[in-house]
Design a protein around this nucleic acid. Structure first.
Length: 282
DNA sequence: GAGAGTGTTGTAAC
DNA sequence: GGTTACAACACTCT
């Protein structure tokens, strides 16, 4: 499930690979997954790979952008050169079989490189946008969680206006971007705050603790290359991330809390599975 | 074999 | 404006 660390990992891996390459051919296998005019894309050169919130943007040489949101099951897989067995960029074995039944778009690039957009559940998308259209994607959103603009003061002011559960609040893009279900659960466990607490009841000290926990957990997620569950998130070479081995509470119902050894519970908040410790998260 | 659960986000309704 | 419910979808699990 791509959240900020997963998308950031993809951006960092693609940045040294894509700039300077041209789009030579595009095959859209599922019309729903692609928005824009294909003809305008052919011949474009990738200038830069960029992430904002959970959106990945490829800046092109004409000033337009190819933007993508992976939603829950999207993957971007990069293959250096299918004809070079064992050469070039290393990939998982199954990558050699692409395109698969879940491949929605295939981009042929110069130097025989290929970029596959796979998306099992068809929620994800790729859009070719002008610069203003691209910027407009973010117009109603707050800053990224790892943006220095997200200070205790900022977050505290935002939370003071909300009566919703704190877990829901930190996942709200209008407040702060990039915190998904997995990292929200883990951050609240680090901060020892109950996900059920109404947002406005947090003291300034608790907001400070929570913010630090969120930034630390997200940073650790980036360091380890993201979280892979059931193969739903994969890096550009088809391999899994590493954070799932360090998860504190997410997906660990019935296991001991890393803080106090109380058994972790699974509850539901706003229709989303939520894992927390009834012992130390108050 | 039917039904529920999964997770992100925009939208519509309150 | 905040909050809530739901739709978009395919696949797994009960």
């Amino acid at each position: 499930m791509p959240e900020l660390p997963e998308v950031e990992t993809i951006a960092r891996r693609l940045q040294p690979l894509l700039p300077g390459k041209n789009v030579t051919q595009v095959s859209v296998h599922k019309q729903k997954s692609f928005h824009g005019e294909l003809e305008e894309l052919i011949g474009s050169e990738v200038v830069r790979v960029h992430r904002r919130a959970k959106i990945l943007g490829f800046e092109l040489n004409d000033g337009s952008y190819l933007a993508t949101h992976l939603k829950m099951t999207g993957q971007l897989i990069y293959v250096d050169d299918h004809s070079k067995v064992g050469g070039g960029h290393p990939t998982a074995d199954w990558v050699q079989e692409l395109p698969s039944s879940h491949t929605r778009i295939t981009y042929q690039l110069s130097d025989n490189a290929t970029l596959y957009f796979n998306d099992q559940r068809l929620f994800g998308w790729m859009k070719h946008l002008s610069e203003p259209e691209y910027m407009d994607l973010f117009s109603s959103w707050g800053p990224d969680i790892n943006d220095p603009a997200v200070t205790t003061e900022y977050l505290y002011q935002q939370l003071q206006r909300r009566t919703i559960a704190i877990k829901q609040a930190i996942m709200d893009n209008k407040i702060v971007c990039g915190v998904g279900n997995i990292y929200a659960c883990d951050s609240l466990n680090v901060a020892q705050i109950s996900p059920l607490r109404s947002a406005k009841t947090l003291s300034k000290q608790e907001v400070t603790t929570l913010l630090e926990a969120m930034k630390t957990v997200i940073e650790r997620g980036i360091e380890l290359g993201g979280t892979t569950f059931d193969g739903k998130y994969l890096d550009i070479d088809g391999f899994a991330g590493g954070y799932q081995d360090e998860l504190r509470v997410y997906g660990r119902e019935g296991e001991a809390c890393p803080n106090c050894k109380t058994l972790i519970e699974k509850i539901k908040i706003a229709g989303r599975g939520t894992y927390c410790c009834p012992g130390c998260q108050t």
